[in-house]
């Protein structure tokens, strides 16, 4: 291993910090990066910043920063989860939603929304993410039990089970939308993903799942490399493949579920970022996984800032990422076809 990958990791890290500061300053009220840093610095010291418009600290700390950090964490989480799914399923086209987790979360969220439409009194800010999370987890359990034979999980049966369960859930979501009748727009908007109005609570929820998840995945990065040789060979090289595979699938799914539950369904971050970075950095997961976290965070933060601060009216973030991601996917697919 040479020094180059570490330089790129460091650059990505600095870029992420710069992006967070720049994005915090952007919006209806323009705040200069210097002022953002001054506000953050004085808040950390527990003081009230001097010589700065007194509404700025509120805008930075209570409005923008939680949303920005949530977007960064979700983007990073989805990208790392995508890289791990690709490595485990030995399929470069896998993404965090391959096992139907997004459909599970969407079904849960739709259920919570329809319940609140029908007047069942659970506060929606609580029930939607909670239902989404448990919907995702239930889907994962369903996919596992459908795919598992004698303690091994084959990639093909996992992917197939994911597709089957996702299609059943989609029908369920369709039915809920039908029931929602005129209020169906609430469901549709949730499904398209958004970071509007994210709070420090969301930052902390995602943080406590995504950071330990990231560390666990990094711990197994070298095992993931070996697993690229195929399950049988990896076993004979000392990797407890079946166990590592299961644990990492659960871990990546947890990360995905929490990401989806705070933001809705955001496509393609988990696909594009691992691909792009694998092209630049090579397939070594020890470098690739941290790079994906940083890259995913930068991308989603960037996309969210575009819709929040640049566009005349906010368009759903999931739509924006898919509009960028879709053509990119076509490009990769085409390139692969031509390379054969």
């Amino acid at each position: 291993m040479t020094a180059r990958p570490f330089v790129i990791l460091l650059l990505l890290f600095l870029l992420l910090i710069a992006a967070i500061i720049a994005a915090t300053g952007m919006g209806f009220l323009s705040i200069s990066p210097g002022e953002v840093i001054a506000i953050l610095y004085s808040k950390l010291q527990g003081q009230i910043p001097e010589g700065i418009n007194p509404t700025y600290p509120f805008v930075v700390m209570e409005v923008r920063l939680p949303r920005i950090l949530t977007a960064a964490l979700v983007g990073g989480g989805l990208a790392v989860a995508g890289a791990v799914f690709q490595a485990i399923l030995l399929n470069p086209l896998a993404d965090p939603y391959t096992l139907g987790i997004s459909s599970g979360a969407a079904f849960g969220a739709s259920l919570a929304i329809i319940l609140s439409i029908f007047g069942i009194a659970i506060p929606a800010w609580f029930s939607i993410p909670t239902f989404a999370f448990f919907g995702a987890m239930a889907t994962l359990i369903g996919v596992f039990s459908l795919a598992s034979t004698d303690n091994r999980l084959s990639s093909n049966s996992l992917i197939l089970s994911g597709v089957i369960i996702a299609s059943i859930l989609s029908a369920g979501i369709g039915f809920i939308k039908y029931l929602a009748d005129e209020q169906v727009s609430i469901i549709i908007f949730w499904l398209m993903g958004s970071f509007v109005g994210r709070s420090w609570g969301d930052v902390i929820t995602t943080l406590v799942v995504i950071i330990p998840g990231l560390l666990f995945m990094l711990f197994h990065a070298r095992d993931l490399n070996i697993m690229a040789l195929g399950e049988r060979t990896a076993d004979t090289l000392g990797v407890e493949t079946a166990r590592v595979k299961k644990q990492l699938l659960v871990c990546a799914s947890l990360v995905t579920a929490v990401a989806v539950s705070v933001s809705g369904i955001i496509g393609f971050v988990g696909l594009i970022i691992p691909h792009l970075l694998r092209m630049i950095l090579g397939p070594d997961n020890r470098i690739l996984l941290p790079a994906c976290f940083l890259g995913g965070a930068i991308l989603l933060l960037g996309a969210d800032t575009i819709t929040r601060a640049w566009l005349p009216s906010e368009i759903p973030i999931g739509v924006l990422t898919s509009l960028i991601g879709g053509p990119f996917f076509c490009y990769i697919f085409r390139k692969k076809q031509l390379a054969k």
């Binding site: 490595a87 690229a228 040789l229 195929g230 004979t236 694998r278």
Partner: peptide
């Protein structure tokens, strides 16, 4: 086992660019 036994399998393919 890995430090005392090595296997060369019948089929081998690799999707990642190592």
């Amino acid at each position: 086992l890995a430090s005392s036994m090595a296997l060369v399998p019948q089929h081998f393919s690799m999707d990642f660019e190592y």
